[in-house]
Computed example of a mutant assay.
Amino acid sequence: MTSMTLDRASAPAASVRARIPDDKAMLRTAAELTRDLVQPRAGIYWADLIASSVVGYGALALAIATASTAVMIVAGVVSMLALYRGMSMIHELTHVKHAQLRGFRAGWNTLIGVPMMIPSFMYEGVHNLHHAKTRYGTSEDPEYLPLALMKPWTLPVFVIVSMLAPVGLLIRYAVLAPLSALLPRLRTAVVSRYSALSINPSFRRRMPEGEERARWVRLEAATSVWAVALIVLTATGVIPFKAFAIFMVVGAGVALINQVRTLVAHLWENEGEAMSVTAQYLDTVNVPPPALLPVLWAPVGLRYHALHHLLPGLPYHSLAEAHRRLSKVLEPASPYHKASYKGLPALVGKLAVATIRPR
C-alpha cells in the first residue's frame, strides 16, 4: 500500500552522498569472497517458514482462546514476532531463483501471504526496482523517501500510520478487489496505486503480463475470498469478534515493527539523484552482532541490509558468513565498515537529529 505524502525540509540541490564514487576494490572483494555462498538451501527456507507459521498461528490461537489477559498479551507478542519473521520472507521471494526452491513461493503464499493479506505479487516486481542502480533513491524508487531531509513530525507519522495497514489490506481485498473486477477505471487505480508494498506515494505500478499476470490474478482472487469470508464470518458471529480483533491487532503490531525497521534500514539522505553502488551501500544499514535484538526486529537477514544491497543475490542464511569474511579481509579504511551501526536507538536518534539539523 502507498503511504501519505510527507513534507520535506529544504535541502541542498545536490546530495553529497550521491557524488561518492564506487570503491572498486570493495566491490571486487565482496564478489570474490562470496561466490560459494550464493546457493539457497531449501531445507533452511522451508524449516524457517514452517516453524514461523506454526509458532505464529499457534500463539495467535492461544491469545484468542485464553481467558487470562497476561497470557493473551504474551501470546500475542509471540505471534506477532513469529508472523513478522514469516512475512519478512517475502523479501527473499523477490531475489531467489524459484527453480532452486521449487514450490516455496506457493508454500509461502499458502501459509503466510494469503492469510495475512500480503500475497507475493505485492512485492514481486516492486522490490527489484529498489535495487536498480539508476532508480535507487530517486523518485522512481518505490521504497525510498528522503526522510532525513523532511520535517521532524514526519517520522512519528511515518511509523504510526503503518498500524492502519491491516484495515487497508482488508479494504483492498474484501471491497476494492471484487468491485474492480466490474469497474475498469477502479481496476486501473487498484493495480497502479494499491497493489504494492511501497512507501513512495508517487510510485505507480503496471499489471504484469503473461505468467506473472496469471499468478497475480490467482493470488488476488484467493486473498479476496479469504478477506470477504473473514468479514462475513465475523459479522455473522461464526468468528467471535474477539478473535477478529486480536488477529487485526497482531497484524497492526507486525506492520508497526516492520515500519520501525524500515525507518532505520537506510539513512535516507539522498535527494533524488542516481547513486553509485558504494553510495547506495553507505546510505544503507548493517546492524551486526554483538547486537542481539535485531534478531527480532530485523529477521531473515535484514540486519545485514547494507550487505544485501552490495550482494543482493546472496540468500539470507549466507549473509552472516559473508559479513564475517569481508570484515576480516577489508582494511579498516574500507567503506565497508562505515555501514555498520550498534543498534536501533542510535539509528533512530541519528535520523531524528538529521530532520532538525539546520540546512
Results as ranks from 00 to 15, higher is better:
Val159Arg: 10
Tyr336Glu: 00
Val191Tyr: 10
Leu302Gln: 14
His95Lys: 04
Thr234Gly: 05
Ala291Leu: 05
Leu179Glu: 11
His98Phe: 05
Pro289Val: 04
Glu32Asp: 15
Val228Tyr: 11
Gly349Thr: 11
Gly237Tyr: 08
Leu111Tyr: 02
Arg35Leu: 08
Gly272Ala: 09
Val55Cys: 00
Val228Gln: 07
Val126Cys: 07
Val114Met: 01
Leu37Cys: 01
Gly313Glu: 12
Leu129Arg: 14
Arg135Ser: 11
Thr188Gly: 15
Val348Thr: 12
Leu347Ile: 14
Ala59Phe: 00
Pro119Cys: 04
Gly76Leu: 01
Gly168Glu: 03
Gly168Ser: 08
Ala106Gly: 04
Glu32Tyr: 05
Phe247Glu: 03
Tyr336Val: 07
Pro345Lys: 12
His317Asp: 01
Lys242Asn: 10
Ala132Ser: 12
Ala221Gln: 15
Lys242Gln: 14
His127Lys: 07
Met275Glu: 04
Val16Asn: 10
Thr5Glu: 15
Thr236Ile: 10
Gly86Pro: 03
Thr188Ser: 14
Leu311Gln: 08
Val353Tyr: 11
Ala222Val: 06
Leu169His: 08
Ala11Pro: 03
Lys350Glu: 15
Glu212Phe: 12
Gly343Ser: 12
Ser224Lys: 07
Gln259Gly: 04
Arg324Ala: 13
Arg213Asp: 09
Leu155Gly: 04
Lys151Leu: 15
Ile246Arg: 01
Val217Ser: 13
Ser68Trp: 13
Pro335Glu: 09
Glu32Met: 11
Leu83Ser: 00
Leu267Met: 11
Trp46Gln: 00
His130Lys: 09
Ala333Pro: 04
Glu140Asp: 15
Tyr136Lys: 09
Pro142Phe: 08
Pro178Val: 13
Ser10Lys: 13
Gly251Lys: 02
Arg206Glu: 15
Tyr194Trp: 15
Lys151Ala: 15
Met122Ala: 08
Glu220Ile: 06
Gly301Pro: 01
Arg8Pro: 04
Pro288Val: 02
Ala106Glu: 12
Thr5Val: 15
Leu37Pro: 00
Ile246Pro: 00
